[in-house]
Design a protein around this nucleic acid. Sequence first.
DNA 1: ATCGTATCTGAACGCCCGTTCAATTCAATC
DNA 2: GATTGAATTGAACGGGCGTTCAGATACGAT
Lengths: 195, 195
Amino acid sequence: MARKTGSHSDITGPRIRDAALKLFAQQGYAAVSMRKIAAEVGVQAGALYLYTPDKQSLLFELMDGHMTDLLAAWEAEPKGDTPIAQLEAFTRFHIRYHIDRPEAVFIAYMELRNLTPKNFAIIEAHRRRYEEALENILNAGQEEGAFRLPDTRLVTMAVIAMLTGVNTWYREGGRLSRQRVERIYWRLVQRMVKG
Amino acid sequence: MARKTGSHSDITGPRIRDAALKLFAQQGYAAVSMRKIAAEVGVQAGALYLYTPDKQSLLFELMDGHMTDLLAAWEAEPKGDTPIAQLEAFTRFHIRYHIDRPEAVFIAYMELRNLTPKNFAIIEAHRRRYEEALENILNAGQEEGAFRLPDTRLVTMAVIAMLTGVNTWYREGGRLSRQRVERIYWRLVQRMVKG
DNA sequence: ATCGTATCTGAACGCCCGTTCAATTCAATC
DNA sequence: GATTGAATTGAACGGGCGTTCAGATACGAT
């Protein structure tokens, strides 16, 4: 047998990326073989190489796609014009966006060490740009006196770590709704920045 | 050749654990082979099995040891008697302890999925106990009116995520000293809990 | 000097890895 | 209904994996 009825390039391609996303998140890049990914798609391992040059590219494209989408989504987000409004927008956006993509987020944070140095540098640049979006808001608020921060760079890292931490405990249908989680975290962030 | 001069069980054992800690943190459990660990120690792969029953036990003992030490160190920490004093003690302790053991901390957070279900349950119980140490402080402060928290469980997770995040950016000899990092984070935590 | 034993080697076991590629199958076109 | 070309198989490549174990080695006790 060779290819099955109705299988086409534009269907198999995305299915491979979906399978890789799921399996990398579940078991980790190093523990997932090309054969496992192929099995999840329902195809032989060799077929994967029609859609990706190698395993590393599969990982990189998942991470690069995630970061690119994240940055684009933040650009497109309505922000308001005061630092306090922008900080609220960032806080709520970050939680909402990350809570909806637990697998991509998990991979983006856990598999950095499995990237080649070149690919790592590209992902790091993306991350840096995203962190700077927050840092710029904090700096603006600091300058105009809306915030009183001990150290904007440190507060940037503290806020992002705190917000991203939601993904470690949030479960769909749990005690708190997304809305409620968003609101509570926003209150905490407010307290952190208000002198 | 067989064993080298001066090699003894009580030397090789710890060296194996040290090598495993270093390599697991650097490359991840799945990517590190028993042969790599053995090479780091300067020994053949077979020799490892005089000191550990298998690779999984090597990982588990590192994680279990780390969590046990962490809990014991917190027990032994001078705490003060008010919730606010205890919260300061916890905040400073957490940062100090974690900043000094980046490899063990990294493994404890990243390699959970590579534990067998039984071992995972044990590590999770440890983590839960540690989280409860903080949650109890927050609850006590909430009840006696020292803190005004939107949700103690959520604030517990937020604070721990924020504090542990230090390990992602802190570098020895960087812009901020440990002392300064401790102090700034304590100010942020204070703001978060004070209504 | 010899022995006993703790320590370690080196080879082997069956298995899985990422990747390549000739051969095959199927859908669309003529 | 034959031809074409994209999609896929299945086998193969060299290599690394965790683990076992008989045999070699060197130290401490006698």
